[in-house]
Design a binder for these strands. Sequence first.
DNA 1: ATAACAATTATACCAAGGTATAATACCACA
DNA 2: TGTGGTATTATACCTTGGTATAATTGTTAT
Lengths: 208, 208
Amino acid sequence: MSLPGSILYVVDDDVSVCRALSLLLKSQGFRVETFTSASGFLDFKHPKIPSCLILDISLPNINGFALQEIMSQRGILVPIIFITGHGNIPMTVKAMKAGAIDFLAKPFKNKELLKSVTAALVRSKVLNQGQAEVAQIKKHISTLSPRELEVFQLVARGLLNKQIAAKRGTSLQTIKVQRGQVMKKMQVKTVTELISLAQKADITSCLD
Amino acid sequence: MSLPGSILYVVDDDVSVCRALSLLLKSQGFRVETFTSASGFLDFKHPKIPSCLILDISLPNINGFALQEIMSQRGILVPIIFITGHGNIPMTVKAMKAGAIDFLAKPFKNKELLKSVTAALVRSKVLNQGQAEVAQIKKHISTLSPRELEVFQLVARGLLNKQIAAKRGTSLQTIKVQRGQVMKKMQVKTVTELISLAQKADITSCLD
DNA sequence: ATAACAATTATACCAAGGTATAATACCACA
DNA sequence: TGTGGTATTATACCTTGGTATAATTGTTAT
């Protein structure tokens, strides 16, 4: 069941838990990295492959929830399976609202965890694909000059060339040239593709 | 804090709970409808305004989870706040995974519920807007003839008129006319708008 | 100052989108 | 058998998109 080229992270301050989970997961053919603190996990260089974090809530310094928030801020899109020995309903709700893919109370059955891991890896794969696509688009966008970007945005909003020219106070010809540049740099051939890209990357608001 | 024109549903087999919640919520200015069974709620004609369902899990016949699934199948997009006297973590996870907006264990504080209700109504409003937009688009699509729909789909995929003509084995002129019909019926003036609509309604796969 | 470079614009030209009108073909219905 | 309606097609014409070439302007670097 292990997807090829996937990696599982385990973060638990209890070394024996780390060891036990690592053993279990490796026996299923998974690559596993264990950490006894949140910062250890954060320092790790995460390869861009389907992955999943099995995370204990009670940790020294940075606890599970705090790590979840940091990951969210940093755009680390690794699905989280929470595990805890002293969980309750409010904690569960909080974790799930924040985007966790599962929440298991210790002790849990091996099968439960494995099922959850499989689901997490599938989600991770989807997330990575979406992320890679958007990253590629933004990479292209970053090659646009400020004016080309502006033209791109206005085209995406459905404005005609002459409307854009009027709005910008320049000539129609300039817009045509710039629009051509945009098409070339974004590596598309038709307006349709351009619009699709614009919507995927949410061009109208993104100005980074 | 009550949004104008909103409605709250309470489903609990315990009449005293229904009464108590109704009293609390009405005191905050909300319109409230209570039901002691899931079927009662399902029979109710839900107005298309921001709304929220406060749902007990243990119910006779159709329990809370079952109702949640039925609503999902029927496309009833009302955010659910689960309440239960005998909840546990697995139940919480199940409910949240299925899309519940919150999960409260009895007894809960009035403030907790009210806060949750407010959040649910906001989400409901967003859901309704999205739903209304897509419904409007699909309504327009339903006025298209089969061939117009086909042309629409191919245009949305970025094909040129002559490519569509070749694919369909008809003349370029026919495609132009049909494309014009599509633009008129979808009530858009530019290709850009048309593509946007197509993506919102997921035209390429939708054939209903 | 001058060479080099980028941005803008003009001119010209072609392809594609879009509309209007009318002719043709096909189908259903009285 | 006609007759009205719809779909298709042809013709003609206009607008818009898109590219190539070259002239112009402004800015930067040597």
